[in-house]
Amino acid sequence: MRVVESINRALHDLMEADLQLVVMGEDVLDPYGGAFKVTKGLSTAYQDRVWTTPISEGGIVGMATGMALKGRPVIVELMFGDFIALAADQIINHAAKFRWMYNDQVEVPIIIRAPMGGRRGYGPTHSQSLEKHFCGVPGLTVSATHEYADPGALLHRALASRSPHLIIENKVMYSRPVFGAAALPRPPDADIVILTYGGCVEHAVAAAKKLVEEEEIATTVVAVEQLSPFPCEDVLSQVGRCSRVVAVEEGSPGWGFASECARALIGRVRHFSALAGPDHPIPSSREWEDDLLPGVDAIQAACIDLFKKG
């Protein structure tokens, strides 16, 4: 099963199971089924509860928040994750606030699905990884799905929690197979641990294979699914006694995933390095994108560097 099918299957199952649930977003209706085809078939099966919306990201997320507050859970699809900037106020000052500031008198079961990431040549405003700007917002859970987890199960868990969730999907990943957690490289007594998430996981896995084969460096890949709140304990236990950690993310450098990993690992590892995307916008040129975004070669090189430090 491919990632897009796993998510699509989960959407169908959730719609079937919860008659109050609404799925909404721009261009989500059949025959188109959303810009990345994730909602395909949904509007045919559940005509009344799949809503195509105006191009109003802030308005849609606000409306969904109001519906959720009054007992109708909503899964919102943002066409491109980049557009989440327009919904920032609704996410931060409304959806994520209500439960706590109203003294736990209410709940807000809303999921926002956001396709992020580059490597498709969409250029500066359609290729970003903006999730870090929404991490550390109390009341909001941010997760990033990947093909070594179960993308559909993540949706099920998020809805069951009846609290606001932002789920980051990756545009390139949609068409990749779901491998499951068992397929992640986890050699005993790893020389290096790569901490990563989302679209970078596949590159880290490929780099880990090359590191073993070409350099005999045993490399574990830890694919972090929940970004915020950051699962410190889980990450620490997965790093175990390994003294070298490389953190890899696709977004811009600093104030992000690597910083959070470093915070969790303070005093626990000897060597730590971080790889990220560029500190300027993502270019449209496909080849230039590949030069800039952390891929197999860059991850491999970073690991070798760290290994040489002792």
């Binding site: 109003s56 802030g58 308005g59 849609i60 997320v61 606000g62 409306m63 969904a64 928040t65 109001g66 519906m67 959720a68 507050l69 009054k70 007992g71 109708r72 909503v74 609704q90 409304h94």
Partner: peptide
């Protein structure tokens, strides 16, 4: 305002 719209639709 959009939150109120959503509340109205839900009920």
């Amino acid at each position: 305002a959009p939150v109120a719209v959503g509340c109205a639709l839900a009920r």
